[in-house]
């Protein structure tokens, strides 16, 4: 990311940010980007909500009474609860990594960036397991409205987590090579904003898709 007030050549000095608001342009831009992402996920979630409970045939997300028979729901709440905890843990690790970079503690930074990437990967692993399991149970992109909306919504989120894991690994490599000193705090902070935002989206998706019938 670049910004034109590098014209003044002050970018390396965080105490002297020469902008109209005194705030860094990259961070403002990233928040604006997050704002745009809010609408992206908002529309996907809105689609999911519009079609919630309107599938003409199974598999259904939750237990349903169809013609007096109980049809078991396909969602695996214990597994997803576990992966939800893992994603929250990764957020804690992320904020600790930022803290480490801010204070110039390279070992902390490496440890926690690694932990963030690891937890993110575990979350993705759970999602891959969940998707393949559903596929074998007969829930596909094509099977019904639930399949389409569920896979596209959670898959879109999963794609964001994947990008986040790559982002974290990049920062980890920089940290290991000693190129992530306190002067790079802002870069890590922005990475953190991305990571926490992806977590926040899961905080919305988890109840709406998994917990509420």
């Amino acid at each position: 990311m670049d910004h034109a007030h590098a014209l003044g050549g002050h970018a390396a000095d965080p105490a002297h940010i020469d902008t109209a608001t005194g705030l860094d342009s990259r961070k403002l831009a990233f928040w604006t980007f997050i704002g745009s992402e809010c609408l992206l996920f908002g529309s996907l979630i809105a689609t999911y909500m519009a079609y919630k409970g309107k599938s003409l045939n199974g598999p259904y997300p939750h237990d349903e009474m169809i013609n007096g028979h109980l049809v078991k729901g396909i969602l695996n709440i214990p597994l997803t609860s576990f992966s939800t905890f893992i994603l929250l843990m990764s957020s804690v690790a992320m904020v600790m990594a930022l803290n480490g970079v801010q204070r110039g503690k390279r070992r902390d930074a490496i440890l926690y960036l690694g932990a963030t990437a690891l937890f993110g990967s575990v979350f993705l692993g759970c999602q891959v397991y969940e998707f393949t399991h559903f596929y074998h149970e007969g829930l596909t992109l094509r099977s019904n409205l639930f399949g389409s909306t569920f896979f596209v919504l959670t898959g879109f989120h999963g794609a964001h987590v994947t990008v986040g894991v790559i982002y974290m690994i990049t920062l980890l490599v920089l940290a290991v090579r000693g190129k992530l000193g306190p002067e790079k705090t802002l870069n890590v902070e922005i990475a953190g904003l991305y990571w926490h935002f992806v977590d926040v989206i899961w905080i919305v998706i988890f109840p709406l898709v998994y917990l509420i019938k």
Binding site: T47, S55, R142, N144, L145, G147, S148, F151, V152
Partner: peptide
């Protein structure tokens, strides 16, 4: 951003056979 999602859903319908706008058989 909303439009991006709308055409993404249409893209998935056309390319991967999802049911977002499948009024014929998926409701």
């Amino acid at each position: 951003a909303v439009f991006t999602i709308a055409i993404t859903e249409l893209l998935f319908d056309r390319f991967f056979g999802t049911n977002f706008f499948n009024t014929v058989s998926a409701g």
